[in-house]
Amino acid sequence: MAMVKTPVLKVILCGEYGVGKSSIFRRFINNTFVPNSDRRSTLGLDHFEKSYQLTDKTVKLQLWDTGGMERIASVTSSYYKFAEAAILVFSLDNASSFHVLSQHLLDIVTYAENAKIFLCGNKSDLEGSSPQVTDADIETFCEQCHNLISTTYKTSCKTGKGIEEMFTDIAMQLVESNRSRIELQTLDHDSFKISNPEPVEDPGCSC
């Protein structure tokens, strides 16, 4: 099934309910912001693909949101499958959303073994002068988890600051680290997606 096509890289959002994952998702889709998280605005939206033109290559990031499953239950393990990258999101104005990240990190390394992991402190507009989560806290966390975190970003979905930069950087890093793997995958990939059969064209009359 070898095909030359733009590689599509699955990127998943992880983290506590209410840290702004759906807001990041919405910014990614159409660069808008809806205050007071209105679930309805992403209702029925599963994932979204966007192309990133890098110096010598185009890739598509396919961003997935949790669908709110983590609100009371946990996210299904299949959410993590086939992910190339995971963004661990916490809220800069909420220390507890930061302190539970190790649990989410554990889920990622368990179910999405090969994913590159990124850390995103959202709501930077609310950070203020005495931040709930300091840069030192973040640094300590990254050290504690054996440098599994590739890069840390700070974003604000409210203002849009840092969002596009984050995704462009993630696209670049994925291409760098996955170059050989992406190529290998397009060659050696014998499982497939199922779809409707190609409509058989009616040959009609041969005259």
Partner: peptide
């Protein structure tokens, strides 16, 4: 016959996600 990667347990999870995406609320345990 077809068989899904990672086992049949992926099937209910896929439909659960569909439900969640359309506003379904999930509670485990």
């Amino acid at each position: 016959y077809l068989y899904p990667m990672y086992g049949l347990g992926e099937l209910p999870q896929g439909f659960a996600r569909l439900s969640a995406i359309y506003g379904g609320t999930y509670m485990l345990d």
